[in-house]
Design a protein around this nucleic acid. Structure first.
Lengths: 197, 197
DNA sequence: ACCTGAACACCGTTCAAGT
DNA sequence: ACCTGAACACCGTTCAAGT
């Protein structure tokens, strides 16, 4: 890659990161090019699709998540490792609003630039899940895709302003379904009376 | 309303129903007006916002869901009533792809034309939930909004092509979190070996 | 009262023309 | 080899002009 091209690529990526962080994964590509002071065609040359742009944006983070799964597998009890990783996965996705939809679609589309990353993440989760299942800590009737789905659902919920406030409890509810006999992380505070919903 | 206006209104609604069923809740309004052989301004006159259009579209179905909740409350065991209603709620939303996002946003926005309907549905669910909680059948640390959130999450998952195949099991997993001691509905089939995820 | 469609400000995507 | 921006086909939304 030529030096000027490399410069454009890097700058484009930095701007895109900021814009996507602020406006979500469906931010205007035109706007990104504009803010990067670059022709619209230049953006398309470096990132032929929106998925390609997000793949570049997410690659390092997704790799970190895979690495962290390996770490947790080596150093933690199977159930703790899984729960910690799930929490991390949801939190990560929450950085970039709307990325969940994209990753979910990419998982189903081998042509997507994001496909490989998503498959890798699913595999990392599936390993942690299998280990917990082998020790009887996790429900045995779940597979890696379903674990991915539950993470995606929790991430989606966290992105909705109506539910953001409830995200921690919703996480606990779903986690308790995956790992039935795990005590709640938070100190099981008694709930406000149920008159208001 | 004048007779010609009424005719336009009805026809617009019928066309919109078909288009939204096919293309989802973010279907082009222009396209709907075009297919209804009506000026774009006419659509906006009758339905000043997309939410208003969907409110008209969903009103009868949402009312039916509220009514069904009352029926179930009168004639079924608390836990069965709740599970049946949850299943129904997810299935309904699944008819119109993308409606979940809209309803979730409306729940948080009192100005939305869909707000009242969503609040009513939440209340209907909350009643069924409270009854099941009173008999110790449902987790006590969940409120109506969280029940709504879990329904929304399941509906969202069902809309994703990658997860559609897993929707029944994902429903069972979440349902088991809400109603911990309920036996699975399906005959707990042994799972395929976990080599493929 | 109600309807129409042009007008405006946006998109995503492509591609001929430039350096 | 890379960059640019006009061109095209779409949007949602508004509003003057018509009946």
């Amino acid at each position: 890659m030529r030096a000027d091209a490399k410069k454009n690529y890097d700058h484009l990526l930095a701007v895109a990161r900021a814009v996507v962080k602020e406006q979500g994964a469906d931010a205007s590509l035109r706007d990104i090019a504009r803010q990067a002071d670059v022709g619209l065609g230049t953006l398309y040359r470096h990132f032929p699709t929106r998925e390609a742009l997000l793949e570049a944006l997410l690659r390092t983070t997704l790799d970190e998540m895979t690495a962290q799964a390996a770490d947790l597998e080596a150093s933690n009890a199977p159930d703790d490792a899984l729960v910690t990783w799930l929490r991390e996965a949801v939190a990560f996705t929450h950085q970039y609003r709307g990325v969940t939809e994209l990753m979910t679609a990419a998982l189903d589309d081998p042509e997507s630039a994001l496909h490989a990353s998503c498959v890798t993440v699913r595999a990392a989760g599936a390993r942690l899940l299998a280990r917990a299942q082998a020790e009887g800590k996790a429900r045995s009737d779940i597979d890696g895709t379903e674990l991915f789905a539950l993470i995606a659902a929790l991430a989606w919920l966290s992105d909705q302003p109506a539910f953001g406030r409830h995200a921690p409890r919703l996480f606990e509810i779903v986690a308790s379904a995956i790992l039935p006999d795990r005590p709640d992380t938070e100190g099981r505070t008694p709930r406000r009376p149920k008159t208001r919903s």
